[in-house]
Computed example of a mutant assay.
Amino acid sequence: MFKKTSFMLAGTLMLMAAIVMVSKPALLDMQAEAASENGAQAESSLVRSHSPILGQADAPVTIVEFFDPACEACRAFYPLTKRILETYPEKVRLIVRYTPFHGDVSDKAIRVLEVARRQGVFEPVLEALLARQEQWASHGSFDESAILEIASEAGLDRAAAEEQLTSADVQAVIDQDMADVRANQIRQTPTFFINGEPLDPFGMQALIDAVERHVQATSEAEDGQ
C-alpha cells in the first residue's frame, strides 16, 4: 500500500479546486462484468470491448474513467492514475471511455486517440497529447494540425490515420461511448467508477482510498481461497 501523503500535491489540488465543478452522478445499480474464461472483455454500459485498457487486462480492480482529452482536470488526474497503475501492476487496470464534452476539439482528439488505439500506440499518443494540451486546446482554442503533429511524433502513422479518422468504425465507437455517457448520467470529466461503483465523494485522495479498499478486499478474498 502506498502512503496517502505521497499524493498530497498542493499545486494540483489547487488546480482542481479552480477548474472542477462536480455534480454527483446518481448511484448506479450496475457493475462491470468480469472477463469471460476465454479472455474476452464482457460488455456493459461501463465497459465495452473496444475501450482502451491501461494496465494488466485481467486485473481484478477496474477503474473506469469517462475522459475528455481536452479537459484540464483529466490532464491533472492522469499522473495520479498512472501512479496507481504502477503501484498495483497486477491488481488494477484503467479503462478509458471517450467523453467529448468540449466540442470539436475533443471530438478530433478522441478520433486521433481511437485511431492510435487501433495502431497499437494509444498510451504514448495519450501522454503526448496531455503533456502538450495547452498547445492544441488552450482556453478553448482548436489547432487540428497540432493534434496530428503531436500524435505523429508519439508514434501515430499520420497518413493512415487521416484516412481512418472519419471511418464508420471510429464513428461507431464514439457513438457507443456517447450513448453510455448518457446511460450513466455523466455530467463532467473526469468521472470515475471503481469496480462499478461511482467515486463519491470525488477527489484525488478519494480515488486513492477507493482503489486501496478494493485492492485490499481482492487480496483478502484471494488469501481466503
Score class of each variant (00 low, 15 high):
residue 215 V to C: 07
residue 189 T to N: 07
residue 88 Y to R: 12
residue 100 P to H: 08
residue 150 I to H: 07
residue 218 T to I: 09
residue 224 G to A: 13
residue 19 I to V: 15
residue 56 Q to T: 11
residue 21 M to H: 15
residue 42 A to Q: 11
residue 163 E to L: 07
residue 102 H to W: 07
residue 129 L to K: 02
residue 10 A to L: 06
residue 9 L to Q: 06
residue 64 V to R: 07
residue 189 T to Y: 03
residue 125 V to G: 02
residue 157 D to P: 05
residue 211 V to F: 07
residue 26 A to L: 14
residue 202 F to S: 05
residue 36 S to W: 10
residue 87 T to R: 09
residue 92 V to K: 00
residue 84 I to W: 00
residue 192 F to W: 05
residue 11 G to Y: 13
residue 61 V to S: 01
residue 114 E to C: 04
residue 89 P to Q: 04
residue 120 G to M: 10
residue 190 P to T: 02
residue 164 Q to G: 00
residue 151 A to D: 04
residue 77 F to S: 03
residue 100 P to T: 11
residue 136 W to P: 01
residue 80 L to P: 04
residue 4 K to S: 15
residue 122 F to D: 07
residue 170 V to R: 00
residue 73 A to M: 05
residue 36 S to Y: 13
residue 158 R to N: 05
residue 147 I to R: 00
residue 158 R to I: 09
residue 90 E to C: 12
residue 185 Q to M: 14
residue 41 Q to G: 08
residue 93 R to Q: 15
residue 100 P to G: 04
residue 71 C to N: 03
residue 127 E to L: 11
residue 198 P to E: 12
residue 11 G to M: 13
residue 167 S to P: 03
residue 152 S to D: 02
residue 139 H to E: 15
residue 167 S to R: 09
residue 219 S to D: 09
residue 136 W to S: 01
residue 94 L to E: 01
residue 217 A to M: 06
residue 90 E to M: 12
residue 222 E to D: 06
residue 24 K to M: 14
residue 46 L to E: 08
residue 196 G to K: 06
residue 161 A to I: 01
residue 20 V to W: 01
residue 219 S to T: 08
residue 69 P to S: 06
